[in-house]
Simulated assay, not measured.
Amino acid sequence: MAYLLLLVAILAEVAATSALKQSDGFNRAGPTLLSLAGYGVAFYLLSLALRTLPTGIAYAIWSGVGIVLVTAVAWIWHGQRLGAGVLAGMALIVAGVLVINLFSAPTHG
Score class of each variant (00 low, 15 high):
residue 17 T to S: 04
residue 85 G to W: 10
residue 88 A to I: 03
residue 61 I to K: 05
residue 14 V to D: 09
residue 5 L to E: 15
residue 48 L to E: 02
residue 6 L to S: 03
residue 45 L to T: 11
residue 62 W to S: 10
residue 45 L to I: 10
residue 39 Y to K: 06
residue 51 R to H: 14
residue 73 V to R: 00
residue 14 V to K: 04
residue 86 V to Q: 13
residue 70 V to D: 03
residue 20 L to K: 10
residue 22 Q to M: 14
residue 53 L to H: 04
residue 20 L to C: 05
residue 88 A to E: 03
residue 63 S to C: 13
residue 14 V to N: 00
residue 10 I to N: 01
residue 77 W to S: 06
residue 75 W to R: 15
residue 91 A to P: 02
residue 108 H to K: 13
residue 102 L to N: 00
residue 109 G to M: 13
residue 18 S to C: 13
residue 101 N to Y: 03
residue 16 A to F: 08
residue 101 N to G: 03
residue 90 M to G: 07
residue 27 N to M: 09
residue 85 G to A: 10
residue 90 M to W: 12
residue 48 L to V: 08
residue 42 A to N: 11
residue 37 A to T: 13
residue 16 A to K: 07
residue 94 V to R: 14
residue 68 V to Y: 05
residue 21 K to L: 02
residue 33 L to T: 11
residue 12 A to H: 02
residue 79 G to H: 09
residue 102 L to S: 06
residue 28 R to T: 13
residue 23 S to I: 09
residue 4 L to D: 02
residue 16 A to V: 03
residue 71 T to R: 10
residue 78 H to F: 15
residue 63 S to Y: 12
residue 74 A to M: 07
residue 10 I to P: 01
residue 55 T to S: 14
residue 102 L to M: 03
residue 2 A to N: 03
residue 49 A to T: 07
residue 53 L to T: 08
residue 88 A to D: 04
residue 45 L to V: 08
residue 10 I to Y: 06
residue 52 T to G: 04
residue 56 G to R: 00
residue 33 L to P: 00
residue 101 N to Q: 09
residue 44 Y to G: 01
residue 109 G to V: 12
residue 27 N to L: 10
residue 36 L to Q: 10
residue 25 G to I: 09
residue 53 L to I: 08
residue 25 G to Y: 06
residue 56 G to F: 03
residue 99 V to K: 07
residue 20 L to Y: 00
residue 73 V to T: 02
residue 6 L to D: 01
residue 12 A to G: 01
residue 28 R to M: 08
residue 106 P to Q: 06
residue 31 P to T: 13
residue 18 S to A: 15
residue 12 A to W: 00
residue 19 A to K: 07
residue 22 Q to F: 07
residue 8 V to R: 04
residue 46 L to E: 02
residue 65 V to P: 02
residue 65 V to H: 01
residue 88 A to S: 10
residue 91 A to S: 13
residue 92 L to S: 05
residue 64 G to A: 11
residue 2 A to P: 03
residue 103 F to A: 00
residue 76 I to H: 06
residue 46 L to N: 01
residue 4 L to P: 00
residue 35 S to L: 07
residue 78 H to A: 02
residue 29 A to P: 00
